[in-house]
């Protein structure tokens, strides 16, 4: 069997004693402790009071959410592509037909139920990528908590609440349609 012989450094007597190295190490950690105690260096953020939100990059992938457009139309048409692509199968959609008296009846289809199980969600962003209607986006919300499993399932209402209004999207269901 092939093996690789690792060349170990030859230690001098002083190094073999170990104690000097130990003291050196203790000095380093002590230095860190002192500088931390003096408030010179601190990596921790006091989370609920201090947040990193302002530094969050544009591409941050937080909770997926549904958006409405300038005209107040829910953009999702329940094509279920996100449900299909979702690797952990977190999305459940039940489509329904938009009633004819509705302002947006020409869109014909909308989700009756749109649920994302945030316990399952892995924030991969494939749903956003696959959406043909620019209806689902990953927002910067990351503190998603709940006391029960049911709490952690975001229903349609909650998803629109997180998503809010998104402007400047392609609007294919326009008056020409």
């Amino acid at each position: 069997m092939a093996y690789i012989k690792i060349k170990r450094p030859r230690l001098g007597l002083f190094e073999k004693l170990y104690l000097p190295a130990l003291i050196k190490g203790l000095r380093i950690t002590l230095g860190h402790a002192i500088s931390t105690l003096r408030g010179k260096k601190r990596e921790t953020m006091q989370y609920p009071e201090e947040k990193w939100d302002d530094n969050m990059p544009e591409h941050y992938r937080g909770a997926p959410a549904l958006v409405t457009d300038e005209q107040g139309r829910e953009r999702c048409v329940a094509c279920q592509l996100c449900e299909f692509i979702c690797p952990p199968r977190a999305i459940t959609i039940l489509p329904e037909e938009i009633p004819t008296e509705d302002k947006w009846a020409k869109v014909e289809k909308r989700p009756r139920k749109f649920e994302i199980d945030m316990i399952r969600c892995i924030y991969c962003g494939l749903c956003e990528e696959v959406c043909p209607e620019q209806a689902i986006f990953l927002r910067k919300d990351y503190a998603i908590t709940g006391l029960t499993r049911e709490d952690m399932v975001h229903d349609k209402e909650k998803l629109y609440e997180i998503g809010g209004v998104r402007t400047g999207l392609v609007n294919k269901w326009n008056e020409l349609k």
């Binding site: 950690t29 860190h32 402790a33 500088s35 931390t36 105690l37 260096k41 601190r42 990596e43 921790t44 006091q46």
Partner: peptide, 10 residues
């Protein structure tokens, strides 16, 4: 606490 200050934490 000591481990924290050694590691520049709180």
């Amino acid at each position: 606490r000591v481990s924290a200050v050694i590691q520049d934490r709180l």
